[in-house]
Design a protein around this nucleic acid. Structure first.
Lengths: 285, 285
DNA sequence: AGGGTTTACGTAACGCGTAACTATC
DNA sequence: GATAGTTACGCGTTACGTAAACCCT
């Protein structure tokens, strides 16, 4: 039987020109390689090399064999990759979220609902989510709007309300509500990985100067240490209610309030039954 | 490295249901097969079977792996086949002829011109010849007409003149020439594998009753033993000039005289240089 | 009890490395 | 002398078969 290792050695000769070079690259002795090729020729019943006393060259048969061998080797490697990927996808739930807050909430919940599954979360631009969902590269997506598409099931997740977080001494601290217009032109701290919210900020406060911070912990330190305004939300307020020296003022614009939706392919309904139940119960706690 | 023999064993399990059956079919012991599968799973880092104490079943990973393994195995076998076929085609010259006479002449000539090559000849319906030539399934074609096509080189081979062969006592025996019309309605002996000529006979003598004979030697015996008319040509007359008790009368119709042409792909010009020379010299011996 | 799988152990095959040889540049 | 390939020989890996144990139907 022609085995893969033979084809690998054959291709190496084509790639590196001589048996010696190929053997070196394969961490193999030349004699081993030479013998394998002799055996390969014997098994195929066809000469693959033109043999001079001192050199070996692939002949036409050999060149064809190399070309076909590459395909076999690639297929073989693809087999392993695809089976591994398939296995991984079977035992992981991958979530794509358009914003951080839904991920903070849903990832621990999924871990509890599906204790045997590995949960992976990623923040991306939500316009691509439907493709990723149908393409199979993720199984759950968190969208900032409802999705109505054949084959996709969409459930309301929760609503996030944005707040302005300022020190008590700040001019806006006394207001009971603010608008994005009030912030335009300010200098603010902003967590850089906000996904959908980032887009909202760019659109509605184009003249605000943002000091970006990508490290979440560092961001919290900055908020505590500086007097600069920043954003908060009902979710972050629940998480770090220890935020002293900060006044949180609700932002009144419609755009400061977003409802997130959790979607998956209908064929996964059975798999995500527990999640659907959890989302339903969450509505009226 | 995942080797082919492992994949073969894997698909055998899929094909025969259990390890025992598969092992039997592969002329292998179950333990060997069992161990190979364990090793395969180990190397892939993925479980391929659901293992009960007493039974083994392919799981989803396994089913995917089997599917992909089939492709790899097929590719691998195709590799050998294709390289062998290619090697064979490199050391053989295959001729497709529209009639037997050109083959009788060209095959021995080719054997002499290319002593290291194997010569294979085949008679087929000439309408398909150009496809076979461009498709690569043969390298020389003998046509009953000149071919003018891009990339095809066409050289005049020779002219064959048809004769009527009758016993001296036959009513037509005294004629210095005959026409196909004179034969219409006769009962004649006919070699069945005449290719182009067969078509000519069917067209021009539709009411003649032909007694077909596919064995060439048997045909010659019949000709000698019976009083039935048959066809001959200048070529056959040269070959079996020992034909006694037969009068050969030339057939005067245009269709009884055919010029054969020998064609090959222009990219083979170099290869068939000796043949071109031979054809040229043959014109004026 | 019988069929199916795995584990344990000894064996034989085989692919590999070292060394020696040949031939070319 | 350096490079490149083949042949010869011994070794270690490994895939295999046999035997036995396990377990379910």
């Amino acid at each position: 039987m022609i085995e893969i290792y033979m084809l690998v050695q054959l291709v190496a000769i084509a790639d590196y020109g001589t048996m010696s070079k190929a053997a070196e690259q394969l961490h193999l002795s030349q004699p081993a390689l030479s013998r394998t090729m002799a055996k390969l020729e014997d098994m195929m019943g066809v000469k693959l090399f033109t043999r001079g006393k001192n050199k070996v060259e692939l002949n036409e048969n050999g060149r064809l064999a190399v070309e076909l061998a590459r395909k076999v080797i690639d297929e073989n490697e693809a087999l392993v990759e695809r089976v591994r990927a398939f296995d991984l996808s079977r035992r992981t739930i991958s979530v794509c979220s358009c914003a951080p807050a839904p991920m903070w909430i849903i990832v621990p919940a999924l871990s509890e609902l599906f204790p045997e599954m590995k949960i992976t979360g990623e923040m991306k631009y939500h316009e691509d989510f439907l493709d990723e969902l149908t393409g199979g590269s993720c199984q759950l997506i968190i969208m900032p709007c409802e999705v109505e598409q054949e084959g996709i099931l969409c459930r309301r997740f929760f609503e996030e309300q944005l707040y302005l977080s300022v020190p008590p001494a700040h001019p806006l601290a006394g207001y009971s509500e603010v608008h994005f217009d009030d912030l335009d032109g300010e200098t603010m701290l902003l967590y850089s990985d906000l996904g959908y919210w980032h887009w909202v900020h760019r659109e509605l406060t184009p003249n605000t100067k943002y000091i970006l911070q990508s490290e979440y912990e560092a961001m919290n330190e900055l908020i505590k240490a500086s007097a600069l305004p920043c954003f908060a939300s009902d979710v972050t307020m629940n998480m770090r209610h220890g935020d002293v020296n900060r006044v949180n003022i609700p932002i009144a614009d419609d755009a400061a309030k977003t409802t997130f939706f959790c979607c998956w392919r209908k064929e996964n309904n059975r798999k995500f039954k527990a999640l659907a139940k959890w989302l339903e119960e969450r509505k009226t706690p």
